[in-house]
Amino acid sequence: MQLELRHLQAVCRIAEAGSLGGAARRLGVSQPALSAQLRRIERVTGGELFVRGRAGVEPTALGQFVLAKARRVLNEMDALGAEARAVADGTPLRLGCILLVLLDGLLAQTDRSMSGREITVDLEDSVTTLTRMLGAGRYDAIVYGEVNDHEVPLPEGARARTLVAKEPFCIRVSARHPLAALDRIALPDLAGETWMALVEDDDGGPEALSAACAAAGFTPLLRHRITDRKMHYDLIAAGRAVSLSQPTAPDVPGTVMRPLVGSPVTGRIRLAWMRSALSGEQAALLYRAAARAHLANVGNHPFHQVWWNAHPEAHPALD
């Protein structure tokens, strides 16, 4: 038997998972099948690659050697695929996103920074769908959000960078609402309101909203889940609902944006890509384009500009 890429991937997954069972689940095979494959690999390499330890399996000295070589080979293969796609004529960069404010300016920024490469952008309502399609090869990269401490699991072979480490969500209410006259709104004052349900339900947002409202002494009444921006804003302007909003969202006639006292709900924006689809250079260009698209909206509301200036740790790393 000769070693193949799938054998190297199996060895790496075992090391990453720390157990045969965990690695088998990641690889989508049974544990007995993976154990048999590992024995065949060890016959080729000439000795045991892993031994059982207190916390699972641990690589032997030979295992460490094979792992180092395997990771190098797999990284080279990922780079080969990504660089070949980048130079191939007519190969678009396939980007998936949830509905983020920065999306409106992202294409203009990529046109400037990515040398006119064709880019396709698809919107999804689910972060889970985004990550699944990233792993399946439908998307080369995705831009998505995470709320409070929620972390979105990524598929094998993906890398990620944080665009915005933390931003406080705001509240959008009708301009005729009594609370619209305030500079900041306390969450308990919204206890009797009808809320717009969050579009994404798997980014930690619903749990964060429920927890924040529970801490404020009430359960939010969620009645509307609308993906159409105009209808969303029209309902709020009419006084029929309130909603959480990114602080970079634009002004909309008939509505106002206000920060929440204590910033009980915060968001994080991330970029993830498949190493086999995007080279490091292409990923860096896309990161900078997304970061500039976000920065273009930071000044939409003076209160957020003040917050942003006071929190440099939240800024994207453009150096």
Results as ranks from 00 to 15, higher is better:
residue 79 A to S: 11
residue 309 N to M: 00
residue 275 R to A: 15
residue 173 V to K: 05
residue 247 P to C: 10
residue 116 G to S: 13
residue 260 L to G: 09
residue 37 Q to D: 06
residue 65 F to Y: 09
residue 77 M to K: 06
residue 224 H to K: 08
residue 228 D to R: 13
residue 151 E to R: 14
residue 40 R to I: 02
residue 40 R to H: 07
residue 162 T to Y: 05
residue 70 A to E: 03
residue 18 G to M: 10
residue 226 I to M: 13
residue 296 A to S: 14
residue 275 R to G: 14
residue 113 S to R: 15
residue 251 D to W: 03
residue 234 D to I: 07
residue 212 A to R: 07
residue 245 S to A: 12
residue 268 R to K: 14
residue 66 V to S: 02
residue 119 I to A: 08
residue 177 H to M: 04
residue 109 Q to F: 08
residue 125 D to M: 13
residue 281 E to R: 11
residue 134 L to W: 02
residue 193 E to Y: 04
residue 4 E to Y: 04
residue 187 L to M: 11
residue 116 G to I: 11
residue 6 R to Q: 09
residue 312 P to G: 02
residue 15 A to R: 11
residue 258 R to N: 05
residue 212 A to N: 06
residue 266 T to F: 01
residue 157 G to N: 11
residue 165 A to N: 07
residue 146 E to W: 01
residue 189 D to I: 02
residue 89 D to M: 03
residue 301 H to P: 01
residue 255 T to K: 01
residue 126 S to T: 11
residue 309 N to K: 01
residue 319 D to I: 01
residue 306 V to R: 15
residue 248 T to N: 06
residue 86 A to D: 03
residue 253 P to I: 07
residue 49 L to A: 14
residue 57 V to R: 02
residue 294 H to V: 00
residue 236 I to V: 15
residue 118 E to G: 09
residue 33 A to F: 02
residue 227 T to P: 00
residue 310 A to E: 02
residue 6 R to L: 02
residue 206 P to N: 08
residue 32 P to E: 09
residue 153 P to W: 09
residue 190 L to P: 05
residue 52 R to F: 13
residue 111 D to C: 08
residue 172 R to P: 10
residue 319 D to A: 10
residue 314 A to R: 06
residue 106 L to T: 12
residue 214 A to M: 10
residue 314 A to K: 04
residue 203 D to Y: 04
residue 143 V to E: 05
residue 257 M to Q: 14
residue 225 R to F: 11
residue 128 T to G: 15
residue 318 L to F: 04
residue 209 L to C: 07
residue 237 A to Y: 08
residue 160 A to E: 15
residue 137 G to Y: 08
residue 32 P to H: 04
residue 79 A to F: 00
residue 226 I to P: 12
residue 117 R to K: 11
residue 221 L to E: 13
residue 93 L to V: 15
residue 4 E to D: 09
residue 225 R to E: 13
residue 307 W to D: 00
residue 196 M to Y: 06
residue 11 V to P: 01
residue 296 A to F: 03
residue 293 A to V: 10
residue 264 P to L: 07
residue 244 L to K: 00
residue 227 T to R: 13
residue 189 D to G: 05
residue 297 N to F: 01
residue 202 D to S: 09
residue 240 R to E: 13
residue 279 S to H: 03
residue 225 R to A: 13
residue 112 R to A: 15
residue 160 A to S: 15
residue 34 L to Y: 02
residue 116 G to P: 07
residue 131 T to F: 05
residue 211 A to N: 05
